[in-house]
Simulated assay, not measured.
Amino acid sequence: MTTYIYMVRHGESPKTEGSERTRGLMEKGKSDACRITELLTGEGIEVYVSSPYRRAILTIEESARRSGQEILQFEELKEQKFSNEDIRMPDNELMPLLKRSFSDPSFALPGGETNHECQNRAITVLKQLLTTYQGRRIAVGTHGAVMTLTMGYYDKRYDLDFLLNTTKPDVYRMEFIGQQFVGVKRLWI
């Protein structure tokens, strides 16, 4: 039985507004969320899950509402924690950390988590979804690093270079037969 997992990276979010957990979407992110709604509606999504972070929820919220579904939130799908603070790290500080974390999956700053830890928590949820909702179409509101690490668990091509070339938003459809990974197709253009 084929199950499809749609990894939906959130839209553009203000870099200074609120905490990591509460940042919403910028106008472009809101506009793109409307396009995401049309794309997901056309795919016949049956289950909606998300990171608890507001920007991820807002990106798939209208699609879930239109299909009469609730969004199931999983703390384990939150963005990778790079430090012990709940604020967005400036790009000039984040980029060297990303590079180091992808070259050394056991690297983390104090209070942060390794790529391996982030990947394990996300994969635990994904495997649970594959069991619970086998044969269904599942949209996952997520973040760039979590999406990349999840996809990279199944295919090593999804690495730092891939992450750096994704967009906000972005949508990838992962195909599984049972728990067996079949492939990925990018749907966002």
Score class of each variant (00 low, 15 high):
1 M>L: 09
1 M>Q: 14
2 T>Q: 14
6 Y>I: 00
13 S>G: 07
13 S>T: 15
13 S>H: 12
17 E>S: 09
17 E>Q: 12
17 E>C: 04
18 G>Y: 08
19 S>R: 14
21 R>H: 08
21 R>K: 07
22 T>H: 08
25 L>I: 11
27 E>K: 15
28 K>N: 10
30 K>Y: 13
30 K>R: 15
35 R>T: 14
35 R>L: 14
36 I>P: 12
36 I>M: 15
38 E>C: 07
39 L>H: 15
41 T>W: 14
41 T>S: 12
46 E>Q: 14
47 V>P: 09
48 Y>C: 08
48 Y>H: 13
50 S>N: 05
50 S>G: 02
51 S>R: 02
54 R>H: 10
55 R>E: 08
56 A>T: 04
59 T>Q: 04
72 L>D: 11
73 Q>M: 03
73 Q>R: 05
74 F>Y: 15
75 E>A: 07
76 E>A: 15
78 K>H: 08
82 F>D: 01
82 F>Q: 06
82 F>R: 13
83 S>W: 00
83 S>T: 15
83 S>F: 01
84 N>F: 02
86 D>T: 03
86 D>M: 02
90 P>I: 07
90 P>N: 12
91 D>G: 00
92 N>H: 14
93 E>K: 13
95 M>Q: 02
96 P>F: 04
97 L>A: 01
97 L>Y: 05
99 K>L: 02
100 R>C: 02
100 R>T: 13
102 F>K: 01
102 F>A: 00
104 D>E: 12
104 D>I: 13
106 S>K: 09
106 S>C: 00
108 A>F: 03
109 L>A: 08
111 G>T: 06
112 G>K: 09
113 E>T: 10
115 N>Y: 08
116 H>G: 00
117 E>K: 05
119 Q>M: 11
120 N>D: 07
120 N>Y: 02
122 A>I: 00
123 I>K: 02
124 T>P: 00
125 V>C: 06
127 K>M: 03
130 L>E: 12
131 T>L: 05
131 T>F: 01
131 T>D: 05
131 T>A: 03
133 Y>H: 14
134 Q>P: 04
137 R>I: 00
138 I>T: 12
143 H>R: 06
147 M>L: 14
148 T>P: 06
148 T>N: 02
148 T>F: 08
148 T>L: 03
151 M>Y: 11
156 K>W: 09
160 L>D: 03
160 L>W: 10
161 D>P: 03
165 N>S: 10
166 T>R: 13
168 K>N: 14
169 P>S: 13
171 V>M: 08
172 Y>V: 00
176 F>A: 11
177 I>H: 15
177 I>V: 12
178 G>P: 13
180 Q>W: 01
181 F>S: 11
182 V>L: 13
182 V>P: 06
183 G>V: 03
183 G>H: 07
185 K>F: 01
186 R>H: 05
186 R>Y: 05
189 I>H: 09
189 I>D: 10
